[in-house]
């Protein structure tokens, strides 16, 4: 694959990633956010594959495959299963109003572009706008975690954030070493499992949500 085509494809994928991020932020229902983050992971895997095909880097292919399997299929499936098991209310309860979150997200993107223009040296020709998009995705993932009440939405935010980090890494150094990527993916899996189990357990013993964990302080 020629570098020009790869650049254009990755830019286009960046736009789609941003759009899925908007969908996650604006989702009024939990399962929509989960579908959106799954779609985002598919796009990330595609981006990895595109970059892998251009730079002939086998590691990127492997990471893309793992991303697809774990973050696009297995973990969303797990989350949806938890929703069904627990029978949580499907409506997302925002801490910050959704329209306000969207406005903040707009600010974050502008900020990300501003930051990455001052980091001009590390931007690669081949990955185009991937650096600001990656930074924006990471920050917006954190925004999701900050602004929603439920534990599962925080999981979604974590995935999105992790996707952003992956995209940023691609932009800066054509992907992190394989071993680090695998470590990160394992972390995410572990986090998801812990969170899922916690939600299941907490729900079964006390009817509480993580926004109410502040009652635990001494």
């Amino acid at each position: 694959m020629s570098p020009e085509l790869a650049t254009r494809l990755i830019d286009a994928l960046g736009a789609l990633l941003l759009f899925t991020m908007i969908l996650i932020l604006a989702a009024g229902q939990l399962y929509r956010a989960i579908y959106a983050v799954a779609a985002q992971s598919v796009l990330i895997a595609l981006a990895g594959a595109v970059l892998g095909a251009t730079t002939h880097n086998l590691d990127l292919w492997i990471v893309a495959g793992i991303t697809l399997l774990v973050k696009a299929i297995a973990l969303p499936w797990l989350l949806l299963r938890v929703i069904r098991r627990v029978g949580i209310r499907r409506e997302i309860e925002p801490v910050v109003p959704i329209t306000a979150t969207l406005a903040i997200a707009g600010g974050i993107v502008v900020l990300a572009f501003h930051l990455s223009s001052s980091l001009g040296a590390v931007r690669q020709a081949i990955t185009g706008n991937a650096l600001p998009v990656g930074i924006a995705l990471t920050l917006m993932g954190v925004l999701v975690m900050m602004s929603r009440r439920e534990a599962l939405t925080q999981m979604v935010g974590l995935f999105a954030s992790e996707n952003g980090i992956f995209f940023t890494a691609m932009a800066v150094s054509q992907g992190m070493p394989l071993i680090i990527e695998i470590g990160v993916v394992l972390d995410v899996i572990l986090g998801a499992l812990v969170m899922g189990v916690m939600v299941l357990r907490v729900r079964s013993s006390v009817d509480a949500d993580i926004a109410e964990l502040d009652r635990l302080r001494g």
Binding site: L18, I22, L23, L25, A26, G28, L102, A105, G106
Partner: peptide, 12 residues
């Protein structure tokens, strides 16, 4: 909220 998706996309 629904139109906010549109606005943010257009803004981006």
């Amino acid at each position: 909220q629904f139109l906010g998706i549109g606005f943010l996309s257009a803004f981006l």
